[in-house]
């Protein structure tokens, strides 16, 4: 499969990375090179092979239900580029 300019633009949009036309044009052959290369996996017969789900055979641990965290608004907001009245502030969203 090869990736078109429109696809690269779409992917950039999905990934929320603003890109100029030149950047997109530069990325097309680069991504095609890498994607063409990973496609060699197509040679591997994986019939009946389950996708790996845990690299070390382990089960998920569950924690007990207790309030052990939170109540640290100052820490949560300390690094915010813009915080107002205890909220994070972002450019207005129109729903």
């Amino acid at each position: 499969m090869s990736v078109s300019k429109d696809q690269v633009r779409h992917i950039a949009k999905l990934a929320r990375i603003a890109m100029s036309d030149e950047e997109i044009e530069r990325l097309v052959p680069e991504l095609n090179g890498i994607i063409g290369w990973v496609e060699q996996l197509g040679e591997v017969n994986t019939d009946g092979v389950e996708p790996l789900t845990a690299v070390i055979d382990q089960k998920l641990r569950l924690r007990e239900d207790a309030v052990t965290d939170g109540n640290c608004r100052d820490e949560v907001l300390a690094n915010a580029p813009e915080a107002q009245h205890g909220f994070f502030a972002v450019p207005k969203v129109i729903e």
Binding site: M1, V3, Q7, V8, I11, A12, L14, A15, I17, L27, L31, I34, I35, V38, L41, G42, V44, T46, V49, E50, P51, L52, T53, V55
Partner: peptide, 24 residues
């Protein structure tokens, strides 16, 4: 960009899931 592409609609099985099988 690569990661977004291999997970995107229509490509997940061909790339990501295939890779997880080879990883197995």
């Amino acid at each position: 960009m690569i990661g977004t592409y291999v997970l995107s609609a229509g490509f997940y099985d061909a790339y990501f899931n295939k890779a997880q099988r080879v990883r197995a």
